[in-house]
């Protein structure tokens, strides 16, 4: 008897647990976008060292390029150019990059470290001269002090890469929309809310989902209607779906930077990927929604 009683009690408790966990989980799972939060226990010194290195020209072979050159931290984390200098693709934002499961337009890399090493060693991009860089940093009082405090082993290739990686990994910048998802209903405007509904209804959220609103799936441009570009020479290939976080501040768009305005690219996507012609109001609403994805920088 007692055994049965205990059993039912335990079962009830389990069911209750299930019930609550289902509620909390489905609240998030019901939405295509998962909110991001800053890492609460961040090593400020290491993060600042990473930022210093990120902005340092001495990391490049010609000494006038830094990571910052193509990823301007005050302008959405990209360079605002059609395609980056010496490269054939548009520079994506560095904000929240660690939430992407694939890096670069072709998505060849799925981890930050090999990608960072590639960028540093690429003769078209950074073309780093390690001997020079390590020597220059080792003679810099600010750096030697910071490296000593954080790493003990001082300035070295591994430590430089490690600091840069730490910076990239923790460059998580939530937006107003994350606040909305986490329960602050008034964080975004009514128009943006409507835009979000449209975004889900028309199927944009099929590809642009997850923590980074994209960045975790591959797709070609022209799923419903064949896309050949404004000049008719757009080479359609399967590319990584880009993250839509900070999309409002990272013009121009598409991998070749061929579209300038955000509204233009919204219409383009609707037409070729969804087979849909949006009204101007709908475009405005989606535009408002996308603007709420811009990171808040203190």
């Amino acid at each position: 008897m007692i055994y049965l009683l205990l059993n039912t009690l335990i079962n009830k408790r389990i069911y209750l647990c299930f019930f609550f966990s289902c509620i909390t989980f489905s609240c998030i799972a019901i939405e295509p976008i998962i909110p991001i939060v800053k890492n609460p226990s961040i090593d400020t010194e290491k993060f600042e060292l990473g930022e210093l290195l990120f902005k340092d020209n001495r990391l490049s072979g010609n000494q006038n390029t830094s990571c910052y050159s193509c990823h301007n931290l005050t302008a959405g984390g990209d360079d605002g150019l059609k395609t980056s200098i010496n490269l054939s693709t548009n520079s994506p934002t560095v904000f929240n990059v660690s939430k992407n499961y694939y890096l670069g337009w072709l998505g060849k890399y799925n981890q930050l470290k090999p990608h960072l090493e590639m960028i540093l060693n690429n003769p078209k991009v950074m073309n780093i001269d390690w001997a020079f860089t390590i020597n220059a940093l080792a003679n810099d009082v600010v750096y030697t002090k910071l490296f000593k405090v954080i790493y003990k082993t001082g300035v070295s290739k591994t430590n430089i890469i490690n600091a840069l990686l730490y910076y990239e990994e923790n460059l998580i910048l939530p937006s107003k929309f994350d606040a909305f998802l986490l329960g602050d209903i008034n964080a975004i405007s009514a128009s943006a809310k409507k835009g979000y509904e449209k975004f889900k209804d028309y199927g944009c959220a099929s590809c642009h989902q997850g923590a980074n609103v994209g960045g975790n799936v591959f797709q070609k441009l022209g799923v419903i209607n064949t896309f050949s570009g404004e000049n008719g020479n757009y080479a359609t290939k399967t590319l990584r779906v880009p993250s839509l976080r900070n999309v409002a501040v990272t013009s121009p768009y598409l991998h070749d930077g061929s579209v300038k305005s955000l509204k233009g690219v919204i219409k383009l996507m609707a037409k070729y990927q969804l087979g849909q012609t949006l009204t101007d109001t709908e475009v405005d609403q989606i535009h408002d929604f996308l603007k709420t994805l811009t990171s808040i920088i203190e």
Partner: peptide
Amino acid sequence: MNDYLSEVAIIRNSLKYLDT
């Protein structure tokens, strides 16, 4: 897996679109 995910995304957006 990536191929499959692309197909799933397209199916999902078609379904959503047709539904709307």
